[in-house]
Design a protein around this nucleic acid. Sequence first.
DNA 1: AAGCCGGGGGA
DNA 2: TCCCCAGGCTT
Length: 348
Amino acid sequence: MNSISKPLLQWFDQFGRHSLPWQATYSSPRGGQSKPANIYHIWLSEIMLQQTQVSTVIDYFNNFIQYFPTLKSLAKAEEDAVLAQWAGLGYYARARNLHKTAQIITEKHQGRFPKEFEQVLDLPGIGRSTAGAILALSFNQNHAILDGNVKRVLARVHQVKGHYSQAETLNKLWQLAEFHTPNNRTNHYTQAIMDLGATLCKRSKPECERCPIQQGCQAYQNNTQGKYPNPKPKKNKPTRSIAMLVYRNTLGEIYLEKRPEKGIWGSLWSFKECTDDRQTIEQVVKKFSPDTRIERYLAPIKHSFTHYHLNIRPVLVTCSTNVKKFYSIANLKVGVPAPVKNIIAQLD
DNA sequence: AAGCCGGGGGA
DNA sequence: TCCCCAGGCTT
């Protein structure tokens, strides 16, 4: 079995992505200006890119490093300030772990990102693939990665049966990833196989005629690209319904409360919720403060998660007094879930 | 091994 | 509507 690395690296030199905001400037063989690897940028990008596409991440990344230019500034920041810049990206445990890791590195690693694989793996939010990616891209260390792109490419190259959610399939893919990862130019190979997956070996309509490794690809040889990767076994998602109570005072400020760290939208700020039932809503609203009045029921919002659907009915409630903490809508300093942001945007 | 954790874009 | 994306953590 031949590694795909040589033709892949050749292809990468000409067709790979070399100008993403977090990338070190590509320095071989075309040469050009040198921009050294910034491990803070690479780490941050790898976390943002977990389950999130490059096109979505770019703006968040550029914004984030404006607010937190260095690892030290991130460590010193308030968690709410970090979450405010993360809001809308989803998977908020990533932001909490990012913040925790910055503090761990400051306190236990003298402010320097560790270079030892096991130490990197110990950091919260960094698993085997992300640890490998960070060390390969930053220091050219020889580690394999196995992200969504690599899984798809290798599943096709070797016609790997089964889905990644099965341990046996995942183990097989890790073995193949280790096998193909070269000792030389591991950094470029790591970027190259992701670029191949993102630009040619796509989920649908792969552009095999332009692929540098078609000779070594079993799926191409057998014309089975459409069968690999094998589809994920699907299951039905339940639907839940809630009401969100939008308390607004006479100053136009709204009431928000911090959600628990565990569960959906962990550590973000959101409206008070109750079951979407007219009686319940009226009871809860009455209990909130003596002078509340239900203004109107807003249009319901559909929101989908990985594992269930959520119907949200926003209820606009006016309050004249300020017995609780309200927030000015403009320039929120805390993170709010995407549907909450949308509801706020639609207020008069 | 399976569930939990977001939001968006493509088909 | 369904799928999946530069996955990791918890149970």
